[in-house]
Amino acid sequence: MDRPDWAPKDVDIEKASAARLYDFFLGGSYNFEVDRELGRKVAAVAPGVYDFTRLNRAFLRRAVAYLCDQGVDQFLDIGSGIPTAGNVHEIAQKANPDARVVYVDNEPVAVAHSDLLLEGNPNAVAIEADLRDPDSILGHEKTRQMLDFGRPIALLTVAVYHFIPDSDEPLALAARYRSALPSGSYLALSHVTMDAMGEQVRQLIDLYRDSQNPVTARSKAEFTAMFDGFDLVEPGVVFTPQWRPESPEDVGPHPEESAVYAAVGRKP
């Protein structure tokens, strides 16, 4: 497979990645044929995947806007993916030009393009690191320079934990990040589930098994457990289009077809 000029030298172009698949489903161009091939297979058995990703992205935008309204001006976005319209720093810095953002992803393509996008922006940086290594993120020089851990921080882990298998102890990871956040901080999460659209999600999981990022779906109770130590803000745990929609039309007649739970919590 030919390597595009824009692809970092250390990126694996032989195996599909979650970040590049997400970019493909959102209509982006920073993906490889191996990603597009798998993306087409996924869409053939789970045509709702385009809505899954679109509605999840819309939840992220609404969550960031809500957090800005609460006075939050620091954001740690882990699993940020490949830059696309409506990035966290664009929303946050429109509300507050001094808002600071740290993007984190373990996909070299995502980090490389984030670096390009952020050139000339002194209040936003990107680092290459993995959610499963909290110390490498929380203790990173760029993180410490950009974020003040003495003031509230919004931790965004949107559509990420379903790539963390049970063997990597997701609840312990969530607790480690919670312990690092000061009082008044927020956590925004979304996570794929088989509680709805079960057959499509099952087939999606089967196809993702051979990618760099296999998927583990979780129930509403398992998802809610990730907010231990946080007070859920209204409307609590819901499907992505139900979380503070801008209009009833945004919810539609079957919000459960998003197949993704979403919620935001505040640390007391």
Rank of each mutant, 00 (worst) to 15 (best):
D2T: 12
P4Q: 04
A7S: 06
I13K: 00
L21I: 05
S29I: 09
Y30S: 07
Y30V: 06
E37I: 02
A44T: 08
A46M: 06
G48I: 02
V49P: 02
F52S: 04
L55H: 13
F59L: 01
R61N: 02
C68W: 00
D73Y: 02
F75A: 01
L76A: 00
D77M: 02
S80P: 03
S80I: 07
G81V: 03
G81P: 05
P83E: 10
P83L: 12
G86C: 07
V88P: 08
Q93F: 03
Q93R: 08
P97M: 08
P97I: 06
V102D: 06
D105E: 13
D105C: 14
N106S: 06
E107N: 15
V111K: 03
L117M: 10
E119T: 04
A124S: 08
D130L: 00
R132G: 02
D133Q: 15
E141D: 11
Q145R: 15
M146H: 11
L147M: 14
R151M: 03
L155V: 07
H162Y: 13
D168P: 12
E169L: 14
P170F: 03
A174R: 09
L181K: 12
S185D: 12
L187M: 12
A188E: 07
L189A: 02
V192C: 11
T193L: 03
T193V: 05
M197R: 11
M197Y: 03
M197L: 05
G198I: 07
E199V: 03
Q200S: 05
V201E: 09
V201L: 13
L207D: 10
L207C: 12
Y208E: 05
R209S: 15
D210S: 10
S219F: 09
S219H: 11
K220A: 15
A221I: 10
E222F: 02
M226L: 15
G229L: 05
D231Q: 12
F239C: 10
Q242K: 13
Q242M: 14
R244W: 00
S247H: 13
P248F: 04
P253Y: 02
E257H: 09
A262S: 03
V264G: 00
G265L: 07
R266F: 00
K267N: 06
